[in-house]
Amino acid sequence: MISPEEVKEMIEAELPDAQVEVQDLTGTRDHYEVSVVSSSFAGKGLVQQHQMVYGALKQAMSTEAIHALALKTSAPKS
């Protein structure tokens, strides 16, 4: 299992300017909803944005510490 704080820290390590909100959907610390706003997403489509977040969480995803992940990503609004 992985804590919401650890999920947030992993994303922030890859996307330092990101505003990250993590919600544990089931209380089991393996099903998360994550919202990420980052200037790194500017000009990128949703698939690319999600790939960037999955890249940040690669280790947790590959070990099944995170079983399910719902993502909301966007660039900051001007």
Results as ranks from 00 to 15, higher is better:
6 E>H: 11
67 H>C: 14
35 S>H: 13
42 A>F: 02
5 E>A: 14
78 S>E: 13
40 S>A: 07
62 S>R: 12
63 T>Q: 13
48 Q>C: 07
19 Q>N: 06
28 T>E: 15
54 Y>P: 00
57 L>P: 05
69 L>C: 12
45 G>I: 05
40 S>R: 02
50 H>Q: 15
10 M>Q: 15
27 G>N: 10
19 Q>S: 10
70 A>V: 13
58 K>T: 03
58 K>M: 06
56 A>C: 07
56 A>Y: 05
18 A>S: 09
72 K>S: 12
31 H>S: 14
39 S>P: 00
26 T>G: 12
59 Q>L: 11
70 A>Q: 12
37 V>K: 01
75 A>T: 04
39 S>L: 03
61 M>D: 07
36 V>D: 05
62 S>N: 13
17 D>E: 03
23 Q>A: 13
65 A>N: 15
54 Y>W: 07
35 S>L: 15
56 A>S: 10
6 E>S: 12
32 Y>A: 01
71 L>K: 11
68 A>V: 03
3 S>F: 06
71 L>A: 14
30 D>I: 05
68 A>M: 12
50 H>S: 05
16 P>R: 04
18 A>Q: 04
15 L>A: 04
72 K>L: 06
22 V>H: 08
45 G>F: 01
56 A>I: 05
67 H>N: 11
72 K>M: 07
43 G>A: 07
38 S>G: 02
35 S>F: 08
7 V>W: 11
6 E>Y: 07
34 V>N: 00
52 M>Y: 03
19 Q>T: 10
36 V>S: 09
59 Q>T: 14
60 A>Y: 07
18 A>E: 02
58 K>F: 05
12 E>R: 12
20 V>M: 09
34 V>D: 10
63 T>K: 15
24 D>R: 11
72 K>Q: 13
64 E>Q: 14
64 E>N: 15
3 S>A: 10
42 A>Q: 09
71 L>T: 09
